[in-house]
Design a protein around this nucleic acid. Structure first.
Lengths: 166, 166
DNA sequence: AGTATATTGTTTAGTCATAAACAGTTTCTA
DNA sequence: TAGAAACTGTTTATGACTAAACAATATACT
């Protein structure tokens, strides 16, 4: 089914490049919405689950990640992490551990409750993802990964080019 | 360049399906960020440009769209459109036109300023998009569109299946 | 040593998003 | 025709996001 039909649009897209971009946007949006519905059963948001996942699998020797590391891995501004971790700390999922060596930053670590929550949710999440992506065979999945990666690389090049002038 | 490297992660993804999903998320996020930077030069957000585009190309006989139509085409909750249109009305880009036949809804229309703004920005936007998507030839672009469409279709099927239980 | 520079986390002001509940309006139906 | 059901837009409370400016701290430079 075409994007045009899905969104109830009256007219077609002017060119395929635009339809690609919108296809990426709307697929991401629908994936997030559907994931969000699932996480809601656990009183968790998708972004919060993302933090749990990063802390579980990407922690360094310190046993956690700094807020800046989290912001980089999540592609968000570090200011945003402050309130996100505030809420997760309040919910007992993570804790801020001060670092004596460098008092500028904290290490964010999973609490026991956070670890349990991750274990409980991750299984459901991964099986749902597998089910959703099952429409593409492994070759197609790798093709998709590669095409998206090429788009991101080109984003850097385009950005490095001439800035937009009015 | 792999997503792992782009995000500075320590460990690999467990399976390709997950990397696909994250690839879609992060590509969408990076596209939005870069677009947002461009729109900023015009005191416009990406979402607001999206509204201008929909009003320009998808308007019906009424010369505009209702807020519910906008919310469906943008895949957002209709409550969100209220404040979005408030801001755009304040900026003089659109106007709410009441409908005598059915007093439940308004038709949102472009103002002269809104039309001028769209014309000014659309050219830059489309050329940037073309430049970014130039890394994929037309066959690849159609493959991408098709794969994303298949994922969205499958989302409906998976959702229709058994609900998540704890 | 002392100044300049960079980094981390926070605060503030503003945008975009959701869900839930509400009022007003229209349509269905019994 | 009267009541039930559906639809549109709004409000409220909450979460996620950005940019910009700030204080505290650490590092580089001369």
């Amino acid at each position: 089914m075409s994007l045009k039909a899905e969104l109830g649009m009256r007219k077609n897209f002017d060119f395929p490049a635009h339809e690609c971009i919108l296809g990426i946007y709307y697929t991401a949006s629908r994936l997030r919405k559907q994931a969000g519905e699932g996480f809601r059963n656990f009183n968790l948001t998708e972004v919060q689950f993302n933090v749990l996942t990063l802390l579980k699998h990407q922690s360094g020797e310190s046993g956690g990640l700094t807020q800046v590391e989290l912001s980089r891995m999540m592609l968000v501004n570090r200011a945003n992490i402050t309130t996100l971790i505030d809420r997760m700390e309040k919910a007992g999922l993570v804790m801020r551990k001060p670092v004596p060596d460098d008092r500028r930053y904290n290490i964010i670590q999973l609490t026991t409750h956070g670890k349990e929550m991750y274990s409980k949710v991750a299984g459901v999440y991964h099986s749902k993802i597998a089910e959703i992506m099952d429409v593409l065979d492994e070759d197609d999945q790798n093709t998709l990964i590669s095409m998206l990666s090429r788009i991101r690389s080109n984003l850097d090049l385009v950005k490095a080019g001439e800035p937009i002038e009015d």
